[in-house]
Amino acid sequence: MKAVAEAESLASEFQADGKPKILFERHKFHAFTAGKYSADHPDISNERADGYTKNEYARLEKAAKLDRTAALKSTNWGKFQIMGFNFALAGFSTLQDFITAMYRSESDQLKAFVHFIKYNRLDDELHEKRWADFSRIYNGKNFHINEYDIKIGNVYKKYSN
């Protein structure tokens, strides 16, 4: 779990200002809003991933003014970078409960991660160090583009020596 946390968020759950670490995914916002805002706001709504900045909260806030629910669902949250649209798989009955937990504590972020892992039956992949299999489910079918499996494996090796 430590390797996943470091590969996903450099093992930090909160920014210096106390807000949970986030990454806004403009391609998810595009999908959730059927591209409605892409022409006028390609920085926050686009078919392509990317466009990340040093201030992801500014992008999230801009998107939230257009469609709050889609914006929150399109964001990776906390130490384990769980996507907002996975709130139920992370053990929460509402998106807002999930967001509140991400702000509340590292412990709540860990509980969400464990729930997500159990729900998706990814514990075997972690125990057996099958990083590609884990990453395919956790990060999606394009996990190899950002080499999540390699990153997790490398971090695991660093801590296991």
Rank of each mutant, 00 (worst) to 15 (best):
residue 4 V to A: 06
residue 5 A to F: 01
residue 6 E to P: 00
residue 7 A to H: 05
residue 8 E to I: 10
residue 9 S to W: 01
residue 10 L to S: 14
residue 11 A to Y: 03
residue 12 S to L: 02
residue 12 S to H: 10
residue 14 F to M: 04
residue 14 F to E: 05
residue 17 D to T: 04
residue 20 P to G: 02
residue 22 I to Q: 08
residue 23 L to E: 12
residue 28 K to N: 13
residue 28 K to H: 15
residue 31 A to I: 05
residue 32 F to S: 08
residue 32 F to R: 09
residue 33 T to R: 03
residue 33 T to W: 01
residue 33 T to S: 05
residue 35 G to K: 04
residue 37 Y to A: 10
residue 38 S to A: 15
residue 40 D to W: 00
residue 42 P to F: 00
residue 42 P to H: 04
residue 45 S to W: 01
residue 46 N to H: 14
residue 46 N to P: 07
residue 47 E to I: 07
residue 49 A to T: 12
residue 50 D to H: 09
residue 50 D to L: 07
residue 51 G to D: 06
residue 52 Y to D: 11
residue 52 Y to G: 11
residue 56 E to G: 07
residue 56 E to Q: 14
residue 58 A to T: 11
residue 58 A to D: 12
residue 61 E to D: 15
residue 61 E to N: 15
residue 63 A to C: 06
residue 63 A to G: 02
residue 65 K to I: 01
residue 65 K to Q: 12
residue 67 D to L: 03
residue 68 R to F: 02
residue 68 R to T: 09
residue 70 A to L: 01
residue 72 L to N: 07
residue 73 K to D: 02
residue 74 S to L: 04
residue 76 N to P: 03
residue 77 W to N: 08
residue 78 G to K: 08
residue 78 G to R: 07
residue 78 G to S: 09
residue 80 F to G: 12
residue 81 Q to A: 09
residue 84 G to P: 11
residue 87 F to K: 10
residue 89 L to D: 14
residue 90 A to E: 02
residue 90 A to F: 02
residue 90 A to V: 06
residue 91 G to M: 02
residue 91 G to K: 05
residue 92 F to M: 06
residue 93 S to N: 14
residue 94 T to E: 06
residue 94 T to S: 14
residue 95 L to E: 08
residue 96 Q to V: 05
residue 98 F to T: 09
residue 98 F to D: 07
residue 101 A to K: 01
residue 104 R to I: 02
residue 107 S to T: 15
residue 108 D to H: 04
residue 109 Q to K: 03
residue 111 K to Q: 12
residue 112 A to T: 10
residue 113 F to L: 11
residue 116 F to L: 14
residue 119 Y to V: 15
residue 121 R to C: 00
residue 125 E to Q: 11
residue 125 E to R: 12
residue 126 L to R: 03
residue 129 K to E: 15
residue 130 R to T: 04
residue 130 R to H: 11
residue 133 D to N: 13
residue 135 S to D: 12
residue 135 S to M: 09
residue 137 I to G: 00
residue 140 G to H: 03
residue 143 F to Q: 14
residue 143 F to K: 02
residue 144 H to C: 04
residue 145 I to V: 15
residue 146 N to A: 08
residue 147 E to A: 14
residue 147 E to Q: 15
residue 149 D to F: 01
residue 157 K to M: 03
residue 160 S to G: 00
residue 160 S to P: 00
